[in-house]
Design a protein around this nucleic acid. Sequence first.
DNA 1: CCCACCTTCGAAAATAGCTTTCAGCCATGG
DNA 2: CCATGGCTGAAAGCTATTTTCGAAGGTGGG
Lengths: 312, 312
Amino acid sequence: MGLSAKETFAGDTEARRHPPAPGILRAKVRSLAPSMTRSMQRVAETVAADPAACAQLTVTALAHRTGTSEATVVRTARVLGYPGYRDLRLALAALAAQQQAGAAPSVTADIAVTDPLPEVVAKLAQEEQLCLSDTAAQLDTAQLEAAVAALATARRTDVYGIAASALVGQDLTQKLLRIGMLAHCHSDPHLAVTNAVQLRPGDVAIGISHSGSTVDVIEPLRVAFDQGATTVGITSRRDAPIAQYADIVLTTAPGRESELRPAAMSSRTSQLLLVDCLFIGVAQRTYDSAAPALSASYEALTHRHSAAGPRP
Amino acid sequence: MGLSAKETFAGDTEARRHPPAPGILRAKVRSLAPSMTRSMQRVAETVAADPAACAQLTVTALAHRTGTSEATVVRTARVLGYPGYRDLRLALAALAAQQQAGAAPSVTADIAVTDPLPEVVAKLAQEEQLCLSDTAAQLDTAQLEAAVAALATARRTDVYGIAASALVGQDLTQKLLRIGMLAHCHSDPHLAVTNAVQLRPGDVAIGISHSGSTVDVIEPLRVAFDQGATTVGITSRRDAPIAQYADIVLTTAPGRESELRPAAMSSRTSQLLLVDCLFIGVAQRTYDSAAPALSASYEALTHRHSAAGPRP
DNA sequence: CCCACCTTCGAAAATAGCTTTCAGCCATGG
DNA sequence: CCATGGCTGAAAGCTATTTTCGAAGGTGGG
């Protein structure tokens, strides 16, 4: 040495081209340990025992923790097949992440009164995600298609909804108005009925009710139905009372309830997804008039936003 | 400055104590990108687009690849919440490993005018799911906690929101009312200001605006702020004008826009998740009064549902 | 038992990579 | 048109990693 091969290439150059995958680290440690010197074994074992923690450490820190020197740590990394400590460290981080990912059971339990906020956030987000995929999965696209077709050619559209469903109705209405369609949402049952009487064939009436048995929504929809308008029911049960007066029934996913979160509240997500689908469907089919209308309403609102950029 | 704070602490020291988990990176990039400078955006996007590849690069290499300088790369890492590039790189490696493990292919393309309905449904559902996890990921739970605490003890609560955000505000209001809290949502700017003047310390005012620059929402919030009420801003940009008058800022995920689905529309999902989190948080903390109030309002509504079961 | 040689190891020098500073540039507003 | 302030990259400064090198300890042969 100077004589024997410089340590520089101790681990052979091949490592530079094919750095090993992280998963095999444990196996490598076990199979290579016997051929390592004692202090290198200490390093290798420490690393295999707690990759996550070691990924946080610098060479110096790891050397210190294993009671060895930086040089030894680097040598160990080389033996394990990495070009240097830096790369071993990256692999450790990756390994730790993989392990953690595998261990993530995902929070499916109910939201409890004692849950800390971060957990509440996680659970809520996950619940709503589930609700969305459920809704999409069980949706009857033929019915949706029919509803879109009716809306796209409607002379006018009435929407009925109460309480939480009223908000969904208003959301739909706002969107339809933005693409130049004539739409109204009624949550006052009397006014709703009064308006329903005005409808005639070719018009569309949409009743939104999670339970499907809200009289204040059923009633105007029945009137609209009797007037010959095309009626759409948005509810969680295909056999709900509201379905009697609905030419088209779109079903929402029931959504799990819990004490803090009654069904009426969790239905919202599902209903809104339907509303978005309806809206996009209609916008597609009336694109020539919808697109200009959309940008026009966008333009019109620009001056309602303050010009100010970030905090002065 | 010598003028402004030394860049050293640009990312604030908190990053040193709570380095963000890897999973959130995409969400963070999306939510923080708007407030970044152009060259930082280039770095952030490159990194988000291919974490695995970037994990292999040194600062210099990444700077070169993005056509920027080392300094910019480090600055970006800071903004993303890491103490420096080294740590961002570790997180990237971890993220890449996680992704590979999860390997979710998924339809990420924009919704096109020509998409058939079933595809629209799938894309919408997935987009909203992404939006939800982004929102949960980037949410600052400390701020949320503060908002919940303020709401739980508020004498009264005012909510300001316009157009789509008005619906979100009403949703929150409905829920708070159900657990016996005094809450109102104002979408008429004049009435909103009139009401804001009535507020005093101990009251809470919440302004909801996706852009964070809607004057009709900022104005009443400013008044409430001046009155000494605790003010909360719900917006997609932490540095939006509305933040000036918000004691607490809750950020929503930006949500990808497309021609058929402008940002204002896709913001809804994110805002509603926040609202739900607020509500559950408050309900937990006022459980003794909230639970009876919830069931009371449930009871009161029963007779508004028709007794009829399945179609007679 | 002693010597020559080899292996293993860590201190410290050398280097590569990361971070900070700083001065120039460009856009913005007066 | 100038002043101001934010954005940027070049380069200085520093830290972490890598390499060198020689000392300590062990081993086998004389």
